[in-house]
């Protein structure tokens, strides 16, 4: 047990994390570890606690209990250090619609104090996120897929170790969704840990490993194959999740 923990390069540790709103536990003692370069999925129906979990890990909400660390920094004790090491892409488009693509990128380059590296990083982000053609366009007029890529570009401007993507493909057409997943795999191959929430069960097969949440509780954890083995080989992941959800309610 100890041995494997040393050999594995764990960048995110979540241990018994709890978030209560009054009497209601939105996240109820959830634990998991994530390794460097993994594409890790947090799945579950609406209201299962996915977004709340991510928001706590990013320092947007304070946990009511439990602990978590990201790239060695404790989220409760050292939230500002966490913020410098992560990227976050919110569910709603969080960039300035009245700024152009280039202006949004330059703004975040400044916010992350890139200094002399600024021009290089902006060029890198535009190339890797396929934004080179549309630098002068206002973010407000971009298509759904272009917005997602711009948001990811801004979130990765400072070369973070861990990137959180909250429902990144919601409302994006299939072609743009495929391109987005291609980009996510490319970044993970560079060693960036990608943590993605989704309620599209057909995306579950794309994850290296995943955790399934229902009503704030962890229902399953592992690779898609492990989860399948655990609950029955003949079922698709979607079937398993529907069953888990029904059992819970």
């Amino acid at each position: 047990m100890n041995e494997s923990a040393v050999a594995r390069d764990v960048v995110v540790r979540v241990n018994g994390l709890v978030k209560r709103f009054g009497d209601f536990a939105a996240v109820d003692a959830v634990s998991f570890d994530i390794e460097r370069g993994e594409i890790f999925g947090i799945l579950g129906p609406n209201g299962s606690g996915k977004t709340t979990t991510i928001r706590m890990l990013c320092g947007l909400m304070e946990p009511s209990g439990g602990e978590a660390s990201i790239a060695g920094a404790d989220i409760a004790k050292n939230p500002e250090l966490v913020k410098a090491r992560i990227g976050y892409m919110s569910q709603s488009f969080g960039l300035y619609r009245d700024l152009t693509v280039d202006e949004n990128l330059e703004f975040y380059a400044g916010v992350y104090e890139l200094g002399a590296k600024k021009a290089g990083r902006v060029a890198w982000a535009k190339k890797e996120m396929r934004l080179e053609e549309i630098g002068g366009r206002l973010a407000g007029v971009l298509s759904g897929g272009q917005r997602q890529r711009l948001a990811l570009a801004c979130a990765m401007m400072h070369a973070p170790e861990v990137v959180f993507l909250d429902e990144p493909t919601a409302g994006v057409d299939p072609a743009a969704r495929r391109l987005f997943w291609t980009i996510i795999r490319e970044r993970a191959a560079d060693g960036v840990t990608m943590i993605v929430t989704t309620h599209y069960m057909d995306e579950a097969e794309r994850f290296d490993r995943l955790v399934f949440l229902s009503r704030g509780k962890r229902m399953a954890l592992g690779t898609p194959a492990e989860v399948k083995a655990q609950f029955g080989e003949h079922l698709t992941l979607e079937d398993i999740f529907v069953q888990l959800q029904e059992k819970e309610s």
Binding site: L60, E80, K83, S92, G94, Y108, V111, Y112, C154
Partner: peptide, 13 residues
């Protein structure tokens, strides 16, 4: 209201 603050808060600003 537009959600841009959420994106600002996760930065070191």
């Amino acid at each position: 209201e537009t959600g841009t603050l959420e994106q600002l808060i996760v930065t070191p600003l």
